[in-house]
């Protein structure tokens, strides 16, 4: 939720700052701030483009060293779609005799609203998919019911995905406009993660013909599920 909670405040602060620059430019251009248009490097009067000033010249009018403005994150605007949409596909290979599942490919298609930084957004999906593979196939806290201890509390026993367990990941963003905040950005913490395990579970079902109903989908569970098929 970092991007949707911070970017609207930043955008509002930027709008207030622009307002202040327009007020600095107005006397020099002999116009009302609302009649001035700021585009690229230029401030110009809307109805008389010959009256213009460069951004640098406007900045020279800043009293002191800097100009500052504040913005706040206002509540979401009512009446707009707020839910994300996405879908994920997993391709798995199951060794039907050993019960070992390998995830070959994950395709993740997501509408997370406006994507501000494609690289980090894609990275967020990659990370979600990786942790999702672990969630689907490996990770679990193993508690000894009698001793009341977790028997796998170390990085050796607690199984996180390793490099060779990483599938090929294809990320597609579908940016559907929404209006619930001023940047159109949506939260994107969990979708790639949660959907991955479900997609892997369904792919395993498709591969072996019977569902494995609990995570992680370990070889013993795959073999047990396949027994019920016969």
């Amino acid at each position: 939720m970092t991007t949707p909670s911070t970017t609207p405040a930043v955008r509002q602060a930027a709008a207030h700052l622009k307002e202040k620059l327009l007020r600095l430019a107005a006397p020099a251009l002999g116009a009302e701030p609302s009649d001035i248009e700021a585009r690229n490097d230029l401030f110009q009067v809307r109805f008389d483009p010959s009256r213009k000033m460069s951004f640098a010249d406007v900045c020279r009018r800043i009293p002191g060293d800097s100009l500052s403005a504040e913005g706040e994150r206002v509540p979401n605007y009512e009446g707009y779609r707020r839910d994300q949409a996405g879908c994920q596909f997993a391709e798995v290979e199951v060794d039907a005799e050993l019960g070992i599942v390998r995830v070959l490919r994950v395709v993740a298609v997501h509408d997370a609203g406006q994507i501000i930084d494609p690289l980090t957004a894609r990275s967020q999906v990659n990370g979600g998919v990786l942790m999702g593979v672990g969630y689907a196939l490996f990770e679990t806290r193993r508690m000894d019911p009698r001793l009341g201890i977790m028997v796998n509390p170390t990085m050796d026993d607690y199984k996180l995905v390793g490099p060779l367990d990483v599938p090929e990941i294809e990320v597609r963003f579908v940016e559907v406009a929404n209006g619930f905040n001023n940047t159109g950005v949506m939260g994107f913490g969990e979708p790639a993660h949660v959907a991955t395990a479900a997609a892997i579970g369904c792919a395993v079902y498709d591969a072996i013909g019977v569902p494995v109903r609990s995570l992680p989908i370990t070889p013993d569970r795959v073999l047990a599920a396949m027994e019920t098929r016969a």
């Binding site: 060794d95 050993l98 070992i100 390998r102 196939l137 490996f138 199984k159 995905v161 390793g162 490099p163 060779l164 367990d165 370990t218 070889p219």
Partner: peptide, 12 residues
Amino acid sequence: EAREKQSFDWPL
């Protein structure tokens, strides 16, 4: 050998 994970794991 058969392992749960392909990296950083022990044989089952």
